[in-house]
């Protein structure tokens, strides 16, 4: 076992290897799981940024038409984009805004609700996509008016649905979830 120099060298090298492995296992400054977590976090951030950039670029023509006051054309452009990206939450939020501006109150609120249900980021004040301020203003402006409509026509299913929808937005703004 320890008969010659060659044997002793072998045992010495083996011992060194075991010590090195122990050190790497228990005292290494960067362990494997941290690297994996960092990779995943980076991946998520990149995905989110890419998604936001894609949405802003794709729906830019709608925003431009709306900004120029051509809301009818903006809605038609939105309809066209719906063919390629059906059920996209960003489209629902834009549609809500355009419909409200044209006086379609109940439908505008319903579109906001759909957008928020599809993606909660739109109600999040910290999200780059967030429309927290816009939705807060919508609730503050429309809730009293819809209450009046419901009081005037208590059996109107259309206005009762609109009231439920605006209560939903109010609850999400207050931090409630689905």
């Amino acid at each position: 076992m320890f008969r010659d120099f060659f044997d002793r060298a072998h045992w010495f090298a083996l011992g060194g290897l075991v010590i090195a492995l122990f050190y790497l296992l228990f005292f290494s400054p960067v362990d494997g799981s941290t690297v994996r977590k960092q990779d995943k976090r980076l991946e998520l951030v990149l995905q989110e940024k890419a998604r936001i950039a894609f949405l802003l670029e794709t729906y830019a023509p709608v925003e431009e038409l709306a900004a120029a006051g051509n809301r009818a054309a903006a809605l038609l452009k939105l309809e066209e984009l719906e063919r390629d990206f059906p059920g996209e939450a960003h489209a629902s939020i834009l549609r809500g805004s355009l419909l409200l501006e044209q006086g379609a109150i109940a439908e505008g609120i319903a579109a906001y609700v759909l957008g928020v249900r599809q993606n909660g980021d739109y109600i999040d004040a910290r999200s780059l996509l967030g429309r927290h301020r816009e939705i807060t203003a919508l609730v503050e402006a429309e809730l009293p008016l819809i209450k009046v409509r419901v009081e005037k026509s208590p059996n109107s299913r259309t206005w009762n649905e609109a009231l439920n929808n605006i209560y939903y937005l109010q609850s999400r703004l207050a931090g409630g979830c689905e």
């Binding site: 009818a72 809605l75 939105l78 309809e79 549609r95 419909l99 044209q102 379609a104 109940a106 439908e107 319903a110 259309t158």
Partner: peptide, 8 residues
């Protein structure tokens, strides 16, 4: 359509 029970 988009305007629900309304049109233009």
């Amino acid at each position: 359509g988009q305007y629900g029970p309304r049109t233009a």
